[in-house]
Amino acid sequence: DETGKELVLVLYDYQEKSPREVTIKKGDILTLLNSTNKDWWKIEVNDRQGFVPAAYLKKLD
């Protein structure tokens, strides 16, 4: 059920640097789980959840 889920576009590649982070690729469109922290957003990638720098993402309307 995708209702109410926010999507984000990945602006730059990011390689995870800790187990709490996930790797993302430029151009991916992913589900945003939590954006309350202005610097690190929690997203879902391939059934994995983790954090990436918010500056690497853009919210889609």
Rank of each mutant, 00 (worst) to 15 (best):
3 T>D: 11
45 V>A: 12
11 L>E: 04
24 I>L: 05
33 L>D: 01
50 G>I: 08
57 L>H: 00
20 R>F: 13
26 K>W: 04
29 I>C: 06
35 S>V: 06
20 R>K: 10
40 W>K: 02
54 A>K: 06
46 N>E: 14
54 A>N: 03
39 D>G: 08
18 S>E: 09
27 G>Y: 04
15 Q>R: 09
51 F>P: 00
33 L>N: 02
36 T>L: 11
5 K>W: 10
60 L>P: 03
8 V>I: 05
25 K>C: 10
42 K>N: 06
33 L>Q: 04
51 F>A: 02
5 K>N: 10
46 N>I: 10
57 L>C: 07
57 L>N: 00
39 D>Y: 15
27 G>E: 02
33 L>H: 05
17 K>W: 04
50 G>C: 06
38 K>Q: 12
9 L>H: 05
37 N>M: 08
12 Y>V: 09
7 L>P: 04
44 E>F: 06
57 L>Y: 01
55 A>V: 11
33 L>K: 05
39 D>W: 15
25 K>E: 06
40 W>V: 03
14 Y>F: 06
6 E>H: 14
40 W>H: 03
10 V>K: 00
31 T>D: 06
30 L>I: 09
41 W>L: 02
5 K>S: 10
19 P>N: 09
12 Y>H: 15
41 W>R: 00
48 R>P: 00
43 I>E: 00
42 K>A: 08
1 D>C: 14
3 T>F: 11
30 L>P: 03
56 Y>N: 13
32 L>P: 00
38 K>M: 10
59 K>W: 07
29 I>W: 04
11 L>K: 05
21 E>G: 10
53 P>V: 02
46 N>V: 12
47 D>G: 15
43 I>H: 00
49 Q>C: 09
5 K>H: 14
8 V>Y: 07
8 V>W: 06
46 N>D: 15
58 K>M: 12
48 R>V: 08
9 L>A: 05
51 F>Y: 15
60 L>G: 03
28 D>I: 04
1 D>Y: 12
21 E>D: 04
57 L>E: 01
25 K>T: 10
31 T>L: 15
20 R>A: 13
36 T>G: 09
48 R>G: 04
18 S>I: 05
4 G>Y: 13
54 A>D: 02
35 S>E: 11
43 I>Y: 00
29 I>S: 02
40 W>G: 01
